[in-house]
Structures are given as C-alpha cells and as structure tokens.
Simulated assay, not measured.
Amino acid sequence: MAKSWFGWFGEKTEVERRAEKPRAAIAVGADDIDPLTGALYWDRFQLMLEAEQAQEPGVLLLIDLSERSIRVGGSEEAKALEILPWLAQAIRQAIRGDDLLAHVDGYRFAVLLRGAPQEVGQITSDRILDSVDNTIFMTADGISKLDVTIGGTAFGVADGQALMELAAANLERARRLEQPALVQ
C-alpha cells in the first residue's frame, strides 16, 4: 500500500486508520443481497445507514438513471433486467471496498461512503459518472448509452430519513440545474 511522504515518518495511511475504527455490528448475509444487482436490499441498507450515522461521519449518495436513458427501447421490465446488473457493477467499480451499495427501487441506487467527508463524496460522484460513461451497456436492442444523475449529502442531520430527503432533494436539484452531480 502506497503511503504519502508523511508515511515515511511512521504515520499510518488513510486505509490503515479507517481499518482500525470499529464498524457498526450489523452483519450482512446472503439474504441481504439482491441477486439481480448484487447490491444490498433497501431495508437492510437503511438499518446500516442508521448505525453508521450514529458512529462516524459519512456521505450518502443517490444515483438515478436519467429520463433520456430510461426511454431507450424495449419494455420496462426487460430493460431493468438487462440494465440493472450492469449499472450496479459500474457503480461498484467506482466506490471504495468498504462502502455500501443498495438498490433503492426502479433504476435508483444508494451508496453509503463510510467515514468520508463531503469532498470524498464529490470525488466518488465524479468516479461513478466516469465509470457509467465508460461502460458499454449491451441490451437486446444493441448498445445503450446510459446517463446518471447523482445527489448526495454529508451526514449532519439526526436520522436516516432526513438524510435521505436531503440527498433526494439534491438529486432533484441536480436534475433541474442539468448538473450530473450535486453533493452538499
């Protein structure tokens, strides 16, 4: 593992410091994972979000497929079965190993960036946008170009529901402003 030049003086890397912090004691089992997307089910994610929010800082991101991408040909259910696994994989490739990915509903996903400040939320949003842009989505109708919009917020409110509402508001604001991502 590469260290910054400070590491040469005996300091620990960011990964080593994060590994030492205790995590929420909520185990994830096979029944908690959506077999289609490989992401956590929404109800399990919410429990983990509440536990994480009580322990340390973090960022919640909501990622949703743009309306233009949803209008790509084919039936809605068939498109979802084809697109969701690819979209989840593109997001998973852009987040850190100990962050949590959940399928909310439809074409919407949530990411919990554990222990991350707001700046990491913006950097991760940019990586997610690049990952989705650089993924070739093969469907029965051919290659599809997908676009996502991201809204996020750093922890700072009392409960998970309020945090979700703030992230959803930032997602809608990003859409109105025609920005790909808005993390506040």
Results as ranks from 00 to 15, higher is better:
T13A: 11
P85R: 13
K79H: 03
G152H: 07
W8V: 09
S75F: 11
K12H: 13
L47V: 06
W5K: 11
S69G: 12
Q161V: 12
Q46G: 05
G151C: 04
A39K: 07
E172A: 14
L49H: 04
A54M: 11
L166M: 13
L166W: 09
A181T: 00
G152S: 07
G121K: 12
V104R: 13
L100K: 14
A181R: 07
M138V: 11
S4T: 14
E178I: 00
E50Y: 01
A80Y: 04
L100P: 02
E178Y: 11
L62G: 02
I150L: 10
A174G: 03
G73R: 12
I136Y: 00
E67W: 02
K145A: 11
E67F: 03
S69Y: 08
A116V: 07
T153Y: 08
E77T: 02
G160D: 03
I91G: 06
L146K: 08
L47T: 06
R114G: 02
A154M: 09
P57W: 04
D141T: 07
G97N: 15
A19M: 12
G115N: 04
G115D: 08
P85H: 14
D105K: 15
V148L: 01
F45D: 02
I70H: 01
L129S: 13
S125A: 15
Y41E: 09
E50N: 06
A181C: 05
V132K: 09
G74K: 05
S66I: 03
S69E: 06
R173L: 14
P85C: 10
G73T: 03
G121E: 12
D159A: 13
R68Y: 00
D105S: 15
W86F: 10
A25Q: 09
W8P: 00
G10N: 08
P35S: 06
V104D: 00
M1H: 10
D141S: 13
A2T: 12
L166I: 13
E178V: 04
V15T: 14
K3R: 14
I143P: 00
R175E: 11
S131C: 10
I63G: 07
K21F: 05
S131K: 09
F155V: 01
L129D: 07
R23Q: 12
D126W: 08
G152E: 03
I70R: 12
